[in-house]
Simulated assay, not measured.
Amino acid sequence: MKNQKVWFVTGASKGLGLTLVKRLLSEGYKVAATSRDAEAMRSEIGHDGGDFLPLQVDLTSNVKVAEAVAQIVSQLGSIDVVVNNAGYGQLGTLEELSDEEARENFDVNVFGALNVIRNVMPVFREKRSGAFFNISSIAGFLGTFPGWGIYNATKFAVAGFTEALSAETKSLGISATIVYPGYFKTNFLLQGSLRSAAHPIADYKEARELEVIHNEQIIGNQPGDPENAAAAFIKVAEMEERPLHLFLGSDSFGMAHTKIEAVQKDLDTFESISKSTDYQQ
């Protein structure tokens, strides 16, 4: 039965992760989910059956992730679908953010996901099947958001290693999908999921203006419905052929086209310069 698939979802205490876990359990799937507070997550989800395994895991620790994967396999039997969803937003221009702030964002958003992939792959390789959904962002495809540079970089990194993963695992029957959500009506833009620079610099006009736009115009008006996103994840996971690139939300879809058009324009405009660097025959 398809509903006996085991899903492993990280960062499931709120937002898209929480909505997805609730939807999966309601549809009869087995679910392991991580949070910084497993009991709070269990209470929020309100499900006590043996098909749900809440885990408190430090995803930046490869040892802790390995222990969690072993526990999932032991208690739920296997892992079929992984959703690398854990992460947080980091505001601040490149000059404003300290080395520590930047590295911490990479530790969680990038290296945490790599720890999960590294430890789940032996399970997937053994059975020659499995699906990864690595959550990037439209900011991991279109990076022209002032004050979001480090966060963008983490999400571009997720896209980059997922493309490589899809090529590395193609002959093993394993898929890897980059998910680029737009703005969804979750608490991502609220305190706890979004951190500000410890030492902001007033000169950065564009970054400050975008912060105001997020605080005054976008919060509460996000076009994306988390329930519809959860349904989309399940639908794609059940497909035999899964996409490498999955844009979620009409805003994400539109911004992707904006980026593609901009790249195509630069390719066309500067084609002669691009090709002038070849050895001349």
Rank of each mutant, 00 (worst) to 15 (best):
E168L: 08
A40L: 06
G50N: 10
G143M: 06
R118H: 04
W7R: 00
M255I: 14
I213D: 11
R195Q: 13
F253G: 00
L172Y: 13
L189N: 12
D80S: 06
R195A: 14
G192S: 12
Q75R: 15
K259T: 14
V9F: 02
L142C: 07
R242D: 01
D37M: 05
L172S: 13
G254R: 10
T10H: 04
S26V: 03
P122I: 01
G130P: 10
F188H: 02
P243K: 07
E95P: 01
L53A: 09
G140H: 05
M121H: 03
S78K: 09
R103T: 01
D99I: 02
F8M: 00
E238A: 09
E209T: 11
L55A: 06
Q222Y: 06
D107E: 08
V65H: 08
R36G: 12
V69W: 12
G249E: 10
L172T: 03
Q75N: 09
D268T: 13
G130K: 07
A12C: 05
H257N: 11
I135T: 04
V179E: 13
K155E: 03
R23H: 11
P223I: 09
T60S: 12
K22S: 05
F161L: 12
G140T: 04
F247H: 13
G87H: 11
E240R: 03
P223T: 07
V31I: 04
E216H: 05
D58R: 10
F253D: 07
V21F: 08
V82W: 05
N85Q: 04
N228V: 11
E163S: 11
E216R: 10
K14S: 15
P146D: 04
V236T: 11
A12E: 05
V63I: 08
N85I: 08
T19R: 07
G173I: 12
N215D: 15
